[in-house]
């Protein structure tokens, strides 16, 4: 499916290149974007066509499932299977999102309040910029540094340790693997777990460092 999307984007780009005329580059871009949007709508449409069959026949009218990563013994066409995965993802994802939203909003509030009282915000307002430009361009960008840190840390933590969420929704991921290995005193999965989490945590923290410099060009992270 990803291949299909890529092919469509390339086709759109090629179309733009062939009939682009004088302004080839914008034409290629427009072609690619249009092709991407079209193929996305086509795919969603195809999935939605299967929705009736999935919700009525596969799940007996209760399409949002609470347990596991897919319906057991489901051997159907690609579209039905895809819908099955999506509907199983809804609840765990919502749970994890709700946990994060609370703390993110508090960090965002604290840092944005700090920034909004700075002098350059007054300058921006005095220049007569709209409130949206002031908040989004001038303030929010500078308030993003703590949020970047938290997101990087959270991504590492989510990959390694959404143990509770995984247990509640009977989803077998890294957390479940780790807990089971601990119970059976099996060393090899634990070492693998450490390797993967170590790599994710370090990579995401390095990414955060890079994003800092992008957000505030004055920052020099010399490692």
């Amino acid at each position: 499916m990803l291949l299909l999307i890529a092919v469509m984007i390339v086709l759109g780009g090629v179309g733009g290149w062939l009939w682009g005329g004088n302004d080839r580059r914008p034409q290629i871009r427009t072609g690619a974007i249009t092709a991407f949007a079209t193929i996305l709508i086509v795919l969603i449409d195809r999935f939605m066509e299967s929705w009736g069959i999935y919700s009525d026949q596969v799940t007996n009218g209760r399409p949002i499932s609470t347990v596991g990563a897919n319906t057991p013994d489901l051997d159907a066409v690609f579209w039905i299977n895809g819908l099955d995965t999506f509907s199983h993802l809804i609840l765990p994802t919502t749970a994890l999102i709700l946990i994060s939203v609370a703390s993110y909003s508090r960090y965002a509030r604290a840092s944005l309040l700090d920034v909004l009282n700075q002098d350059y915000i007054r300058t921006a307002r005095a220049k007569g910029l709209t409130e949206r430009t002031v908040v989004m361009r001038h303030a929010f960008r500078n308030a993003l540094i703590p949020i970047t840190t938290i997101i990087a840390l959270d991504l590492g933590a989510l990959i390694s340790g959404a143990v509770l969420t995984e247990t509640v929704f009977a989803w077998s991921g890294m957390g479940a693997l780790f807990v089971q290995a601990l119970r059976k005193v099996d060393v090899n999965p634990i070492m693998g777990f450490f390797l993967v989490t170590a790599i994710t945590v370090i990579v995401f923290n390095f990414l955060a460092d890079i994003v800092y410099s992008a957000l505030d060009p004055r920052i020099r992270v010399t490692a």
Binding site: P146, T149, A152, L153, N205, Y212, R218, I219
Partner: peptide, 9 residues
């Protein structure tokens, strides 16, 4: 990590 990020800026 939070304090480090802020201090860097």
């Amino acid at each position: 990590r939070l304090v480090r990020g802020e201090v860097l800026a």
